[in-house]
Write a protein that binds this DNA or RNA. Structure first.
Length: 427
RNA sequence: GGAGGAAUGGCAGAGUGGUUGAAUGCACCGGUCUUGAAAACCGACGUACCGCAAGGUACCGGGGGUUCGAAUCCCUCUUCCUCCGCCA
């Protein structure tokens, strides 16, 4: 959530930024928020003054009672009762203004960083780091991962339909082992890089979902359990970042680095078709996430650091990838800058997104009330997160890119995790 | 699910209607003393909002109520602890 103070002091920069998102009527929306906040201040000041008078009179009434001056106390009490009525009326108005202000503020997306390109769709994304050299060509007859999955017994969508419904893959045998191997590999690398491992809850309450920005923006994308008013997490970002909701950190506690493995649940309402075959888009998938909490001065350095870390994981897996800097129109609601990692899927001959690394600046921390102490007082921290990494498309790419006569050749870093160097056909 | 108990500042822990934003101890920070450290002593020590400032307002788990006045009384919700039941 944007801070009103920022809207007041930095309107031009914010407008320039929001234009990159093609947000209609941005200027009018900002003006309205500021006007509401003006009204808020006015009402609050009025009310504070009334309450100050009430407190003063109450003290006098107390003194009068002690000295036995009952009549004098009575007349003061009448005056206090008048004040109470006035104050109640102002508070009603204040609550209305606050509600409206909150609603307006909730609708404003984060302001893209100056380096974020303008644009309306994925086509306007900037190729930040292209894959060097030729893309691998596995040769004619290369099979897409959903065919390989059958041949090698990696996962079954049919079994998922039996237990649950479409889009819930069941990993089997060496496929399940591969998945576990990748999770362990990622967690080991992340913890070695200084991230502390957490295993958070997979269901979260409404406050948590709102603080990281999933609500109200992505309401329909999350599975919801009405009985208990809980949401299944769409990413570990939600519980991990909320671990620090409401905290006031000392400067020497920063940066905070967290990592966690969780299944992720996404309704993906309305996306069907050939481009979502196999593991390309599923309702439940495994992901290892990294999160950082840091200062405004350091957050973009940390973003670079996280991008480098994720790139290192893909290097180790020997997967061809490129890095995109998302344009304003393609970026998430809460982000100020996002880098997407895409791996090349040789058989499908297309890029698959496997990681998204973002700096949210103070957008989340404002909702989280996540601050740290400086010499000049408290300040909102910056939050960042990224996938390191999302599993299904990594598996898809590993299968497709590494298929050979004698099996699927696994990258060396995985050998010890999976106990063998290649996956074998089961039929 | 049932029956009890509890929730106060970074921590521990007073406070059951009136200058209590809150005693006291510990921790932390500044200082005195010391060659240095410890000890001792002195001082400072919550957050948010409004205000140029002085200052004002709010906050003692959340919400609501009673009262001139609530950390303190009432209602309600949440969480934690103990016991019983159920259970991976």
């Amino acid at each position: 959530m944007l801070q009103v103070q920022m809207l007041r002091e930095d309107k031009d920069r914010i407008l320039t930024g929001l234009e990159k998102r093609n947000l209609p009527d941005a200027a009018a929306k900002i003006d309205e928020v500021v006007a509401l906040d003006d009204r808020r201040k006015e009402l609050q000041t009025q009310n504070d003054n009334l309450l100050a008078e009430r407190n003063q009179l109450s003290r006098e009434i107390g003194d009068l009672f002690k000295s036995g001056q009952k009549e004098a106390a009575g007349s003061l009490r009448d005056r206090v009762n008048v004040i109470k009525d006035e104050s109640a009326a102002i508070e009603t108005a204040l609550t209305e203004v606050l509600t409206e202000l909150d609603e307006q503020l909730l609708q404003l997306p984060n302001v893209p960083h100056a380096l974020v390109p303008a644009g309306s769709s994925a086509e306007d994304n900037e190729v930040y780091q292209d894959h060097p050299g030729e893309l691998p060509t596995p040769g004619t007859g290369a099979k897409p991962h959903w065919e390989l999955a059958e041949e090698y017994g990696i996962f079954s969508l049919e079994l998922g339909v039996r237990t649950t419904g479409s889009g819930f893959p069941v990993f089997t045998g060496q496929g399940a082992r591969l998945q576990r191997a990748l999770v362990n590999f990622f967690l080991d690398r992340n913890t070695a890089a200084g991230y502390t491992e957490y295993a958070p809850p997979l269901l979260v309450n409404e406050d948590t979902a709102r603080a990281t920005g999933q609500l109200p923006d992505k309401e329909g994308q999350m599975y919801y359990v009405p009985e208990d008013d809980l949401y299944l997490i769409p990413t570990a970002e939600v519980p991990l970042t909320n671990l620090y909701r409401g905290e006031l950190l000392e400067a020497d506690q920063l940066p905070v680095r967290l990592t966690g493995y969780t299944p992720c649940f996404r309704r993906e309402a309305g996306s069907y078709g050939s481009h979502v075959r196999g593991l390309n888009r599923v309702h439940q998938f495994d992901k290892v996430e990294i999160v950082q909490i840091t200062t405004p001065e350091e957050s973009y350095t940390k973003l670079d650091e996280m991008v480098a870390h994720v790139g290192g994981l893909l290097d180790e897996l020997n997967l061809p990838y490129r890095i995109l800097r998302l344009c304003g129109g393609d970026m998430g609601f809460t982000s100020a800058m996002t880098f997407d990692f895409e791996v090349w899927s040789a058989a499908q001959e297309r890029w698959l997104e496997v990681s998204s690394v973002s700096n949210f600046e103070t957008f989340q921390s404002n909702r989280l009330k996540l601050r740290y102490r400086t010499e000049r007082g408290t300040q909102l921290a910056h939050t960042l997160n990224g996938s390191a990494l999302a599993l299904p498309r990594i598996i898809a790419a590993l299968l497709e890119n590494n298929q050979a006569e004698d099996g699927i050749l696994l990258p060396e870093v995985l050998h010890s995790y999976i106990g063998k160097a290649r996956l074998e056909r089961i039929k």
